[in-house]
Amino acid sequence: MSTDYQRARQDLGRRLRELRVESPDGRLTGTELAHRLGWTQSKVSKLENGRQTPTVDDLRAWADATGHPAAFGELRARLRGFESQIRSWRRQLAAGHRPVQDSWNAVIFESRTVHEWENSLVPGFLQTADYARAIFVGHSALQHSPPDMEDAVRARVKRQEWLYRPGKRLNLLVWEGALWTRVCPADVLAAQLDRLIGVVGMDTVRLGIVPLDAKLSLNPANAFCILDDRLVAVEDWHAELWLDDAETIALYRRVWDTFAESAVFGAEAQQVIARVRRSLKV
């Protein structure tokens, strides 16, 4: 978890404690507040010490129970402030993968230029329907999310319409290791690699492959996507980070530029993809 996120959660916890201690009915103990709310005392303690993220309903209940209903707006604003950066998969996927894909598509379609680095999978922008389906099946099982595979696949494939709109530009770097990742049957992967080979040379796409034997100045760490100069999205197992401060965006752009120095493009990129494709023997 990021330091900034944890600090914001701890600050919110201190504010919650202030409201409890300064209750108009007199100072409440944690045990007394837990009894009023019907919670365990450990939940009150975790929220006050920044070890658990409250829900909006938690904050409303806390404000009312401590006698400070007018403080709810402030508490909700604090929560929104740091949740805009750390977007929990548990919460995002509560209604399935389709809503997440729709939301991401809306952000993408507002963008003109995308710089993406992918180190483990073929990027969603260029996934075939069968490849995307395999990804969603695996992540649905991991996150225990509703199995809305077909709706999610259609939403992800719809994103590719962006590539055919005037003025759009996708600058994509993929580590060769991502091409070898067997997250789907061999025939599905073969078709996916054929799709990548066909993308090389598109007017709106600049696809670079970083070969496994390329000299790297940085380790091929987590994937990320930069939208114009306004947002960086970074995926982790527990959450998706949306980062919009200029310094962080500039940092990720330097990372992308560094990987680009090790990448091959055009015919050389096609040769790397084709080499992996031949290994499948399907």
Results as ranks from 00 to 15, higher is better:
5 Y>L: 07
7 R>I: 14
15 R>K: 13
16 L>V: 15
23 S>L: 13
25 D>G: 14
25 D>H: 10
29 T>E: 05
30 G>V: 12
34 A>W: 00
38 G>D: 05
41 Q>H: 12
42 S>M: 09
45 S>Y: 04
49 N>A: 11
58 D>P: 08
67 G>F: 02
68 H>T: 15
69 P>V: 12
70 A>Q: 11
76 R>P: 07
79 L>P: 05
81 G>D: 08
88 S>L: 09
89 W>H: 13
89 W>D: 03
89 W>C: 09
91 R>Q: 14
97 H>T: 11
99 P>Q: 06
103 S>P: 04
107 V>N: 01
109 F>M: 12
112 R>E: 10
112 R>H: 10
114 V>Q: 04
115 H>Q: 08
119 N>P: 08
123 P>W: 00
130 D>E: 15
150 E>Q: 14
159 R>C: 08
164 Y>G: 14
165 R>V: 10
165 R>H: 07
168 K>N: 12
174 V>R: 01
174 V>F: 02
177 G>D: 02
181 T>R: 11
186 A>K: 08
188 V>M: 03
190 A>G: 14
191 A>V: 05
195 R>G: 10
199 V>R: 00
211 P>T: 08
220 P>D: 03
236 D>Y: 07
237 W>I: 15
243 L>N: 03
250 A>W: 01
254 R>K: 14
255 V>D: 03
261 E>V: 12
262 S>P: 04
264 V>E: 01
266 G>F: 01
267 A>G: 09
268 E>M: 05
269 A>K: 00
273 I>N: 00
273 I>A: 03
281 K>V: 15
281 K>A: 15
